[in-house]
């Protein structure tokens, strides 16, 4: 039997972020290994052939789910299933909770990490759309220290992000949930573990009268990168959205999508999926916003 084995590389398991950065700086063609659930398959298929792998999962204190006074902080090596096991996420961050349940499959979620999912740059990754909809930020560390990059603007092209090759994402910061917040992630997939045909992340902030003050809508796997649907979100803000507004937001989200026809369906079908999922996700997010105390 022919066995599928990655090309040769040198493996390092540093004990600190700074040591990891040093390894990235001093080795040509190095990649960070977080969960490896996307990187190792790419290497086995020879679509990636880094000379050095820097495994950051043995660095202490890089895996956590904490809420501080102003944000929900997720450590880079937090496993996807740690989100599913977190009562804090389930109770207060429904957009993240929805997405974490539908990333790949339960076994992959035991290895796959938050940091890997947001940094990989595949438009089919599910967390980037959540982070755009939340208006989250990424704390990255490099040779010159820390910097914070907004999720919006981070995704430049397929597999291309604004992370420098010698930088490591250490923390994802999601704005802290407030009463009146509501979110939802709806994903259509052919089968468990496939990337989305299309998926939509919606995050809303409402006041006590139900007026939407902030809205974020982002789209998974219908373009070269994750896409922000700003006009669709704008259709919902500064008012209490009516059914007509929700229908219009769905249409605007479909217009913002840039899908290709491929094995997951024709482009027009995917636009239709985006439209319908957006409408449903907005309704669900509004319902959840009303329910949070």
């Amino acid at each position: 039997m022919t066995e599928v084995i990655p090309p040769e590389f040198e493996y390092h398991a540093p004990g600190s972020v700074d040591e990891a950065i040093g390894l990235l700086q001093n080795s040509g063609e190095a990649k960070v290994l977080a969960g490896g659930q996307s990187l190792l398959p790419l290497m086995k298929l020879r679509l990636a052939a880094p000379k050095t792998l820097v495994d950051i999962t043995r660095i202490p204190k890089l895996s956590y789910v904490n809420e501080t006074t102003d944000c929900l902080c997720l450590g880079a090596t937090t496993k996807i299933n740690d989100l599913n096991d977190s009562a804090l996420i389930r109770n207060r961050y429904p957009l993240l909770a929805d997405a974490a349940q539908h990333i790949a499959d339960p076994l992959v979620r035991n290895m796959g990490t938050v940091g890997g999912n947001v940094c990989h740059g595949d438009p089919g990754n599910d967390l980037p759309a959540c982070m755009l909809a939340y208006g989250a930020s990424y704390v990255v560390r490099g040779p010159k220290g820390n910097r914070t990059i907004p999720a919006q603007g981070f995704y430049q092209d397929t597999f291309v992000t604004s992370l420098d090759p010698s930088e490591i994402l250490v923390e994802v910061q999601v704005p802290k949930a407030q009463p009146g917040d509501g979110g939802a992630y709806l994903k259509m997939e052919r089968k468990v573990s496939d990337f989305a045909i299309a998926a939509v992340a919606v995050q809303l902030r409402t006041d006590s009268r139900g007026t939407v003050n902030q809205a974020g809508i982002a789209l998974t796997n219908v373009g070269p990168t994750v896409l922000l649907a700003s006009q669709a979100a704008g259709q919902l803000t500064t008012k209490k959205p009516t059914n007509a507004d929700i229908l219009a937001a769905g249409k605007l989200a479909a217009e913002a999508a840039q899908p290709n026809s491929d094995l997951r369906g024709p482009a027009e079908f995917k636009r239709g999926v985006v439209q319908t999922l957006t409408q449903r996700a907005v309704k669900l997010a509004l319902w959840r916003a009303g329910g949070m105390s």
Binding site: V4, Y11, A13, L33, G36, Q37, L40, P41, K44, L45, D55, T57, A104, D105, P106, L107, V108, N110, M111, S193
Partner: peptide, 25 residues
């Protein structure tokens, strides 16, 4: 290719796909 789960083992009691985990991990 990380799809089928036939290679599932428990790593520290957690099920993972052993075709997508390095032995050094």
């Amino acid at each position: 290719t990380t799809h089928c789960g036939a290679c599932t083992v428990l790593l520290d009691d957690v099920p993972v796909k052993s075709c997508t985990v390095l032995a050094v991990q």
